[in-house]
Each structure stands twice: as C-alpha cells, then as structure tokens.
Design a protein around this nucleic acid. Structure first.
Lengths: 245, 245
DNA sequence: CAGTGAAGTTTTGAATGCAAAATGGACAGG
DNA sequence: CCTGTCCATTTTGCATTCAAAACTTCACTG
C-alpha cells in the first residue's frame, strides 16, 4: 500500500469552495478509479494540467498524495504512472481490507442503532432482489453500500478513511459485472450470515464473517483477473501487472 | 499507505540524494513523530523551510502527504498544525491498528519461517529480561520490535506500510515510559500468549490475541493520558486535544 | 547497414513571484 | 476600560520561471 491508507483527512465542513488542491485531488482520484487511464500508463503532468485546467503546482501536490495512497507510482524524473498491481499486490490489499472489515464488524455491532440495522436489512433485501433478477449493476452497487454502511456504523472516521482509500484501489479493477454466478450465490449466503450476525449484534462473529467474506471475494476477483489475463491481450482490459513498457 | 513507505529506516547512505520531496517528507515526519512540535502547534511554512533549508514547494508537497497520513492537519489559508487528538481519536486509531494486528497475526503464522519464530522468541526473552530489570526504555523498544517483526512476517508490504503510518501517529504520544507497572505485567502475559500461539502457528488464535492486546494497550494509554491531563497543565506534556488557540 | 553518440526538444524538480486571505495592532467610539 | 473597525504586515495558494534530467532525432563511424 503503500500507502494507501490514510489516517486522517476527514473534514468537518466542505460546503466551502474547496482549495484547488483538494478539488484536483478528488477529481484526479475519481478519474483514475473510474478507469479512464490504463494500468501502468504514463501520465505526463502537462496533459493532466490541460485536462483539469490547473497549473502544475496543485496537480503535483495531488499526485504526491495519490502516490502515498498507492493509486499512483512516481518514478524519479520520469513522472507518474497508474499503479499496476500484480496478483500478489491485489491479495495484499484485500488482506488489509479484510482486517479493516473485521474491526468494522465488531464495532458496528456495538455502535449501530436499531434504525441503522433496519436500513442495512433493507439494503440487503434490495440486493437480494437484484440478485434474483440478475441485475448485476444494482447488485454490486447495493453490495458496496452495505459494506460501506457497516464500516460507517463503526463510527470511526479514521477507519472509514482508510477503508475508502484501500477500496479506491480495488474499485479500479472493475471486475464487478464479471464474476461467476456461482460466486454470486456464495456471496449472497455470506451476506445473509452477516446480516444475521448484525441483527443479533454478535460482534465477534460478525467481525470474523466479514473477514472471511473478503477473503472469498479476493479469491473470486483474482480468479477473474487471472482468467481475463489468460484469454485477452487487447489493451483496455483491467489487468494485472503488465510487462509492457 | 503508501506504500511502502520508508518509515523507520534512516539510512547511512545519502550520497544518492533522493528527491528533495521524499527527503523532506521523511525528515518532517520524523521530526513530528519524535515530538519536537507540541500538539496543535501551528507550523508556519517559512519557519519549516528555514529549518530544513528548502523552498516552499517541496515542503508543501510533504505537508499534503502528512495531512493525508493524519499526522498533520491543514486549515485552509491558515497553514498546517500538528494534529491534536481527542481521546476518541486515539481510540479510533487504536481500533484501526488492532485490525491490522489481527490480519498480521493470522498471516504471520502462515508465512513466517522457523528462523523467524526463533528470532521473535529471542526478542521476547530479551524483553522479559528488561521487564524483570525494569529497564523500561529497552522494554518498549523490544516490545515495538516484536510487533514490527510479526507484521513484517505477514510479508505484506501494504500492511506494513499502513501499520507504520498508523503507528507513527501513536508514537508521537510518548506514553511509553509511563504506564503503570500493573499494565506491564498484564502486557507480559499477553505477549506470552502471543508468542505461544505464534510458535504453534495458530493463526486464528494469534490474530485474536493481537487484536485484544491492542485493545488493552489502548485502554492503558488512554488512562495514562487522561491522568496526565488531569494533573498537569504545563506546556510540554503530550496531551489530548487542547482547547487553546 | 547497424551502432554510437551528440545536440535539440521535452519533461520533471524545485525556486521564485504575485495576488488573495488572514493576522495583528492602532485608533475611534461607546 | 472595553469593543469594534480599518490598515499594514505576514502568510498562504497558485502560477510561472529556471535548471537539470530524460527522451528524440539524426548524423557519423566502423
């Protein structure tokens, strides 16, 4: 991870016109997370400056931060590249996320309100509906929202920030709509157990369930990526570390 | 995060002048972690520039990164301050660290070599000696080394980086030499259980032990800080969020 | 014809400059 | 005596500038 994790950086009021730096940081991160730049691609500063209409100073500040988060890597005197992950790197990242999920599960049980539980149950039901109808986009969106809700229920801004940062790197992979349906049903069952433990506020159990859930997810994602890599060479697929350039 | 983060390594070779930015980042982080700046203190850029002998550009880049790591907070148009933590903030941080320790324990059992276990056992014995002799400085140094060794044994650079980054914030608190001796003996017992689980490579058990160990440590540190704050007002004590300024 | 390397161009790293915002203080009014 | 306003100074945010390092190109040598 490099980073990846950031510890602090949650700000109370952001109604103000954020500083240019923060603005660029958010926009550039989104831009990369959304996959507009291929893995390992070199990113000339001036091109990004043109794209975002700022001078190099705030942009370079943002790049340093993104490098610290692990989304980008900076080669001395050779500019920034979108970080390309090996399978091992992805596993490492999932391991960290699993640890965060573990704490989140424990704390959420202790701190979530009854309304909060009800809200997550509703999300789960919606997700189940999407699952039955094979509406994968909605399914993954709701899945993500459930995890986010549990993390937020832990009521720990530092945890939330770290989780978001690590997840940003993962989200770049865009495996979402392509997992085997076998995995989907396994995931549903895991989620059912998670919801059940949450409802009973069984923190120790929920922590372990979430931990294991992420491990399974890691395997599924790695399987998918390995398969992708084996079958396709063409450029724009999300892929593991490329040996090119 | 960042990956990798070259956190604690101060290297003898400075013939290869790394980029000024990285240099400043490391030096400034160490400077803050070592407690040379009081909590909540405002840090004018030009003063730091003078101290480190660089222009504002690389220094500002370093500040943004440290802000992302949570060591520093940046107030818009008002410069950087050393981040002051409330007790809640410290608990949040420990919760995250505990999660990382949990994963570290699990993974370490699966990945550590027999030699690695032997090395940690030696550290434990040395720590025990320091404990018996009440040599607290050595005790805490060895304690820290044991935890670091377990995290490193997990063989996950992203985890290590995150752990280092979170720990940097904690280390700033400098509670080390001031915990109650009651806590020391509890900690020794916890460490014995940890070493035992590691020797047996009982990963699930070790993960939970390390998690609980950090929770206890959190309580001890919070107790200490609360007590400090109650008895002392004078300036230079590590303290929780101050209402001053 | 391939390989080498030298000059020019591009790009990065860091310093400086400039405008806007904030800080501090004097002064006037209550 | 306290309070609030206005102005000078300082400090921050960002753009621009400058120097050094990397890539290109292309001519020249073997």
């Amino acid at each position: 991870m490099n980073n990846l994790m950031r510890i602090g950086s949650y700000e109370p009021d952001e109604d103000q016109p954020a500083s240019l730096h923060d603005d660029i940081l958010v926009r550039l991160r989104d831009f990369i997370v959304e996959g507009h730049l291929p893995s390992g691609a070199r990113i000339p500063e001036r091109e990004l400056c043109a794209r975002f209409n700022v001078s190099r100073t705030p942009l370079r500040e943002a790049l340093k931060v993104l490098a610290a988060e692990g989304l980008v890597e900076l080669l001395p005197n050779r500019g920034a590249r979108v970080r390309a992950f090996t399978e091992a790197g992805i596993r490492h990242l999932f391991e960290v996320i699993a640890g965060l999920d573990f704490v989140a599960g424990r704390l959420a049980c202790a701190r979530i309100s009854d309304d909060g539980i009800a809200a997550i149950e509703r999300l789960h039901l919606d997700m189940y509906t999407s699952y039955l109808r094979r509406e994968l986009t909605d399914y993954f969106r709701l899945n993500q929202m459930i995890h986010q809700s549990i993390v937020d229920a832990a009521d720990n801004p530092i945890l939330s920030a770290n989780y978001a940062s690590a997840n940003a790197v993962i989200r770049r992979l865009r495996y979402s709509a392509n997992l085997k349906s076998e995995r989907l049903s396994d995931a549903m069952r895991e989620h059912e157990a998670i919801i059940d433990a949450l409802r009973r506020r069984a923190g120790e159990e929920l922590g372990l369930l979430m931990f294991e859930h992420m491990r399974e997810k890691c395997e599924a994602v790695c399987d998918y990526l390995r398969e992708q890599q084996a079958t396709e060479q063409p450029a724009e697929t999300p892929r593991l570390q490329s040996s090119e350039t």
